[in-house]
Computed example of a mutant assay.
Amino acid sequence: MSRRLLAGTLLLAAGALAVWHGAYRTVESVLAGALIRLYTSDSVYVAAERQSVYLGLGGERPFGLRMSPECTSAFVLLPLLVIGAGMIARRPAVTRRVLGALGIATVLLVLLNQLRMLVLVGTVNSFGAYRGYLLGHSMFGSLVSVIGGVAVLVLFVWLATRSPEGVAPGRQRPSATRVLSSPGNRRPCRCRRHPWRGRPAGRS
């Protein structure tokens, strides 16, 4: 696949994510429901069509969480796709590193958002619906999102721009031919000319 086609594919993926982020949030909601079931013994219901997760149904403190556009990881992943497309278009040599960095960043962003949801559920269970939601969403959840998001961004840039081991940035690894033919690696010739010990030609 050519670099232009690959960069265009990433831009199309970013555009699709911006237009159909509702489907992305649906997947995140289903995943959040599955993880919350492992975390709590309360009954959990996932309304995938509304991107919502309901907990504690039938109990004393039922509440629901909706994966709104502000709470999804889609709009954090979107600029990384655009940046990755630009890097591939400008420097084809970094294509593999950029794609690998995008894959790792995508997984980490999804897991980070799920961790934020679990923190929110934990604060609601501990401090009640009103106070727990304020603490989990505005304080602890924001800390998880900001610190984790910055860490993922730094990791993406490092993975996408790091040079191969032993090669300085912007320089290519010298080939074996260049190494062997470089002046510093040439061994001085140890051969000596031996004088002619025979008779000169044409003389008796």
Rank of each mutant, 00 (worst) to 15 (best):
20 W>S: 06
54 Y>E: 15
104 I>M: 01
35 L>N: 10
56 G>N: 15
172 Q>M: 08
64 G>Y: 01
130 Y>N: 09
93 A>D: 15
122 G>I: 04
130 Y>H: 02
39 Y>E: 14
149 G>Y: 06
112 L>H: 01
13 A>L: 13
42 D>Q: 15
4 R>W: 11
91 R>T: 15
204 S>D: 13
168 A>P: 14
148 G>L: 08
25 R>G: 12
82 V>D: 04
174 P>C: 00
26 T>W: 05
135 L>Q: 06
84 G>S: 02
101 A>S: 13
9 T>L: 14
139 M>Q: 05
165 E>H: 06
201 A>L: 14
171 R>C: 08
50 R>T: 08
96 R>N: 05
70 E>F: 12
36 I>W: 07
103 G>P: 05
65 L>M: 15
85 A>D: 06
27 V>S: 07
182 S>L: 03
21 H>W: 09
166 G>L: 11
189 C>S: 15
174 P>G: 00
115 L>W: 09
118 L>T: 08
123 T>W: 01
101 A>V: 07
63 F>K: 00
33 G>H: 07
50 R>S: 10
7 A>D: 11
26 T>G: 14
77 L>N: 07
203 R>E: 12
203 R>A: 07
128 G>K: 01
84 G>T: 02
193 R>L: 11
50 R>M: 09
30 V>R: 06
151 A>H: 02
109 L>C: 04
16 A>M: 13
62 P>V: 03
78 L>W: 10
57 L>C: 04
160 A>Q: 03
105 A>N: 03
4 R>P: 12
67 M>H: 04
90 R>A: 15
92 P>D: 03
181 S>W: 07
49 E>T: 08
5 L>K: 06
203 R>C: 01
84 G>D: 04
163 S>Y: 03
15 G>P: 07
157 V>G: 02
119 V>N: 00
160 A>P: 09
187 R>V: 12
172 Q>P: 08
204 S>I: 08
180 L>N: 04
12 L>T: 13
188 P>K: 00
200 P>C: 00
61 R>N: 14
41 S>G: 04
155 L>K: 04
12 L>C: 13
160 A>D: 04
117 M>C: 09
14 A>Y: 02
156 F>V: 02
193 R>Q: 04
40 T>A: 06
27 V>D: 10
157 V>D: 03
35 L>R: 11
53 V>T: 06
147 I>W: 08
102 L>V: 02
144 V>D: 06
6 L>P: 07
197 R>V: 12
178 R>I: 08
106 T>I: 02
104 I>K: 01
132 G>K: 01
130 Y>A: 10
96 R>G: 12
102 L>E: 01
145 S>Q: 12
74 A>T: 15
184 G>Y: 00
187 R>P: 05
37 R>V: 10
139 M>R: 01
125 N>K: 05
45 Y>H: 05
1 M>I: 07
114 Q>P: 12
23 A>M: 06
174 P>Y: 00
140 F>T: 13
